[in-house]
Design a protein around this nucleic acid. Structure first.
Length: 464
RNA sequence: GGUGUCGUAGCCAAGUGGUAAGGCAGAGGUCUGCAAAACCUCUAUGCGGCAGUUCAAAUCUGCCCGACACCUCCA
């Protein structure tokens, strides 16, 4: 499999440190609010990566953090007159509700920053010991960005350009405390009224970037295979993580870096101030979670994706086609099938095309095209397919859609006896050419939430 | 100013040198008592524009036009 590595800016063969095992760290949310649909993109994209690697027989150690200490959390807690932890736990629970809705598998570990203060302080100590950090007069601990030779290697930015080109840098509040404008905090001294932890440098809390360095090291080791997140994290977050981790550990932090592009609204970045801000929760209420997940797969993860209501409608319709196909397959299995083996060959072709697409930097768009080609094959051939071919087709269909995490809502409950009786009565009415009664029963079934369709193999019942 | 990305049908979108996938929407048709679903056919002589390289360009090069992002809040 090849993936695009932000560090080298080219597609590279993905080779793990340990054969058959992938150690992946994906930056998770700061839990100060419901996640918005932009947050859903990395969550879905890297869940697909994980599922695909597992599908190909690998073990995946997947870590995705929960940032539960941050300025925004503190502000929200103050505004609500509650504690930071209460706010964090509340939105963490909402985050998991959304993850479940989106069909995102739980990470191997979802570490919380506040539960890794010891590990964080240990890295801070490493950084200070090696001379890459210094304690400011107020108790802040800063990292000497310029001292780290590789600083800028991920974002391909040159420090001097950054500093000269950005005025905010020079006017930031902490400026007086820093030796250099490019330095960043790894530990922040406590301000009155803020939550804090004790440290050798006085009471304080972790800087934003240090938690990921600490949690990645604890749960995955000093060198990991893939570090991923949204493209906005490249600088400064990931750049700073690299600086911290590589100084502290003395080795490469991550062999591969993957970044998803943004999801925009009307071609512009979402922002609360612009008023184009949508949460996953509110959109799922209208179109369903699965349409959101599907939507994330309709563009390549490194290209910007533009959200509109019309596109979500289109995604719903496309999903309907997939569900109908799966139902056709199940119906064919139920009816015994025929003698043709062609569908089994088509299934093999679909699988091979799907994997070829996914192996090429997670090309979910082509992977979907492979599935839809297969859908046409299934719809055309399943009535005559042999039981063995049908079984293979069903397995492949479930495997491929399973990797993408779509078409997962199967009807498991039995059709109620009264519905079956009505369908039987309708079949009899039809045989007697009593169309009025047949249509009446169809309407009655619709009221009960069932649709009946007439096929060459007899009536096909489905839930609406 | 520095660093990048993108422009393909009504909409979305893949394709990075060999003659335009797939989805949604639309039109016509087949099947059906009617319907639904499905299937078949049609919908870009052309990939922002202009030059150039090549037997061959959506794909490579140059210029231009347009859109967007990052540059210490951010997925």
């Amino acid at each position: 499999m090849k993936i695009f590595n932000t560090m080298t800016r080219c597609k590279q063969d993905l080779v793990p440190i340990e054969e058959g095992v992938y150690r992946i760290y994906v930056c998770g949310p700061t839990v100060y609010n419901f996640i918005h649909i932009g947050n859903a993109r990395p969550v879905v994209v890297f869940d697909v990566l994980r599922r695909y690697l597992e599908y190909r027989g690998n073990r995946v150690l997947f870590v995705s953090n929960i940032t539960d200490i941050d300025d925004k959390l503190i502000q929200k807690a103050i505004a609500e007159g509650t504690s930071m932890q209460e706010v964090a736990r509340r939105y963490e629970a909402e985050y998991f509700t959304d993850l479940d809705g989106l069909g995102v598998e739980r990470a191997t570990v979802h570490p919380r920053a506040t539960e890794h203060i010891d590990e964080i302080l240990s890295i801070v100590a490493d950084i200070l010991e090696k001379g890459y950090g210094y304690i400011a007069e107020n108790g802040d601990v800063y990292f000497r960005a310029k001292k780290f030779e590789g600083y800028g290697k991920l974002s391909h930015l040159v420090l001097e350009d950054l500093v000269s080109g950005n005025r905010d840098l020079k006017s930031s509040l902490a400026e007086d405390l820093k030796e250099d404008p490019a330095d960043f905090a790894v530990w922040k001294a406590a301000k009155p009224g803020e939550p804090y932890w004790e440290s050798p440098y006085g009471n304080g809390r972790p800087g934003w970037h240090i938690e990921c360095s600490a949690m990645a090291r604890k749960h995955l080791g000093k060198t990991i295979d893939i570090h991923a997140g949204g493209e906005d994290l490249i600088f400064p977050h990931h750049e700073n993580e690299i600086a911290q981790s590589e100084c502290a550990n003395g080795c490469t932090f991550s062999n591969y870096w993957m970044h998803n592009a943004f999801l925009n609204i009307d071609s512009h970045k979402m922002s609360k101030s612009a008023g184009n801000f949508f949460t996953v929760r509110e959109i799922s209420a209208v179109y369903g979670y699965e349409a959101i997940r599907y939507f994330m797969l309709t563009g390549h993860y490194r290209s910007p994706l533009n959200y509109t209501a019309e596109l979500l409608e289109a995604c719903k319709a496309a999903l309907e086609r997939l569900y109908t196909c799966r139902a056709n397959l199940a119906f064919a299995v139920q009816n015994g099938g025929g003698a043709s083996e062609i569908l089994a060959q088509k299934a093999a072709v679909a699988k091979s095309k799907f994997c070829l697409a996914m192996d090429d930097d997670l090309n979910t768009v082509e992977a979907l095209a492979a599935i839809f080609d297969f859908v046409r094959d299934v719809n055309t051939l399943c009535a005559d397919a042999s039981p063995a071919a049908l079984e293979i087709a069903a397995t492949v269909f479930d495997e491929l859609t399973g990797v993408l995490g779509i078409v997962q809502h199967r009807e498991t409950s039995e059709t109620p006896a009264d519905v079956l009786a009505l369908v039987e009565e309708r079949t009899a009415a039809k045989a007697a050419k009593n169309w009025a009664r047949a249509d009446e029963i169809r309407a009655e079934l619709a009221e009960k939430g069932f649709a009946v369709e007439d096929t060459a193999q007899g009536p096909k019942i489905s839930r609406k």
